[in-house]
Design a binder for these strands. Structure first.
Length: 421
RNA sequence: GGAUGGGUGUCGGAGUGGUCUAACGAGACAGUCUUGAAAACUGUUGUACCAGCAAUGGUACCGUGAGUUCGAAUCUCACCCCAUCCGCCA
């Protein structure tokens, strides 16, 4: 959600933003609706003022005749007021609907593009792993080592179902523990949030109304969130913070549920794309200025880069192009890990900032040093998702004998150096 | 699944359809008094939108939305939310 005043004064920017994000949105339609809204508001407020003024007269009328006369006058005003309010009601529906579709404006540094193929590489780290043998993919390795059962996963859950077993489970716990130490050591408060959430939180974060199809829903009308970002953003909804409390840094840990409704042909094999997984997520609320947003955005992304580096997995970082940005995102970095068997970098992390797009919808404010109420800025980034991280971890660290070398930093958490011996 | 009670300002808490510009109390802030503090006393104390360069003016907000009325915190209806009890489960 953007400020209507800002939209009116910068409608060209909005039009360019929509085009860059490949979102079909006509800002002129919103301006037209807003013109009607303003007119109806001014007009009905004037009539109401008249009515308010007459009220005292009616209450203190000296004679019944005087009173009857005043009431008769106000009956006329009432009819006019009802007409204005009818207009206002109709246009407000339209207006609110349009306001929910206004895209946030991408940063200058976001490249143009039509799809994730146009994302701009800004960093590569590590050597793409070379093998003196024919590397296998993670499904083959894990199945052979009793770490993964896709067949029975499918039997029980259906398409994209999986069982992790044995050392795969231990590896997940090791990664979670390590991540908790790593990110916790950088000032993030660990949080296990509710992931079955009320609808309002999804509107607030910008996942609704557009993302309805990708979400699981309960019979009570609640939703299973696809990321801990949703409940963490809801945490301070409708609250006013003090500037001294900012920035707030959270490390959420939660299961994540995604229907992957629009991705039926994509990544049909293995652990890349699944309906339920676990994720540690960084969320920050900070002061309302662009520099702070940029600073924390870089910080959040660097945290995950350094985490991946400590595991010694080759990766690259991209700036997502316009078409790959969500409605509310100003800028987004993806970190992609090298997957040897596919010979491709695959997304593992996504860090974005929103300015006050989310906090306006959620009504998260703070008082700045002058005492002025302001909407905070929000940003978030993946810390680490499981089991997706296992794909590149296992494929990059596989050995000729079919075993897996555990990254040294994880040995302390995992308990042994090699899986499969 | 069944039953009941309740949503008022920063908080507690009143509120017979018109003077609600929401009583009263607490808190916070400022001042008086004081060597300083406490106490006491006095005053101030929300948010959003519209018009305006501004000073300022207007409107709305008592959970949300409709309705009745010249006029609604107050009456009617629907919904949302909160709490408690019983049952069931962990």
């Amino acid at each position: 959600m953007l400020d209507i005043k800002f939209i009116r004064e910068n409608k060209d920017l909005i039009a360019i933003a929509a085009k860059k994000k490949h979102i079909d949105f006509d800002v002129e339609k919103l301006i037209a609706a807003d013109d009607i809204r303003r007119k109806a508001m001014t007009s009905s407020e004037k009539l109401r003022a008249e009515q308010n003024a007459a009220n005292d007269g009616i209450a203190s009328a000296k004679t019944p005749e005087e009173r009857t006369k005043l009431i008769a006058d106000m009956k006329v005003v009432k009819v006019a007021l009802e007409k204005d309010e009818e207009t206002l009601k109709t246009v407000m529906k339209d207006w609110q609907n349009l306001m929910l579709q206004v895209p946030n404006i991408p940063d200058m540094s976001v490249p143009d593009g039509n799809s994730d193929a146009d994302n701009m590489e800004i960093k590569t780290w590590g050597e793409k792993t070379k093998f003196a043998f024919d590397p296998k993919d993670h499904v083959e390795i894990m199945t052979a080592l009793g770490m993964l059962d896709l067949e029975r996963g499918q039997k029980v859950h259906g398409f994209r179902g999986y069982y992790l077993t044995g050392d795969a489970v231990k590896l997940c716990f090791a990664i979670w523990s390590y991540a908790l130490d790593f990110f916790g050591g950088r000032g993030f408060l660990p949080v296990i949030p509710p992931i079955v959430v009320r609808k309002i939180n999804l509107f607030g974060t910008g996942y609704l109304p557009q993302g309805e199809e990708d979400m699981y829903k309960t019979q009570d009308g609640d939703y299973l969130a696809g990321t801990a970002e949703v409940p963490l953003m809801g945490l301070y909804a409708d609250e006013t913070l003090t500037v001294a409390e900012l920035p707030k840094k959270f490390l959420g840990f939660s299961p994540c549920y995604r229907r992957e409704a629009g991705a039926h042909g994509k990544d049909v094999r293995g652990l890349i794309r699944v309906n339920e997984f676990y994720k540690l997520e960084q969320v920050i609320l900070c002061e309302a200025n662009h520099e702070a947003s940029v600073k924390f955005h870089d910080e959040v992304n660097a945290n995950t880069e350094q985490f991946i580096e400590s595991l010694n997995i080759p990766y690259r970082t991209v700036i997502n192009c316009g078409a790959d940005l969500g409605l509310g995102q100003v800028k987004k970095y993806d970190i992609e890990l090298w997957v040897p068997k596919e010979e491709k970098y695959r997304e593992i992390s996504s860090a974005s900032y929103f300015h006050d797009f989310q906090t306006r919808r959620l009504n998260i404010r703070y008082r700045d040093v002058e005492g002025t109420l302001r909407y905070a800025h929000s940003l978030n980034g993946t810390a680490i998702p499981t089991p997706r991280i296992l794909v590149s971890l296992i494929e990059n660290f596989q050995q000729p004998d079919g075993t897996i070398k555990v990254p040294p930093i994880l040995v302390k958490y995992f308990g042994k150096e090699v899986i499969g011996k």
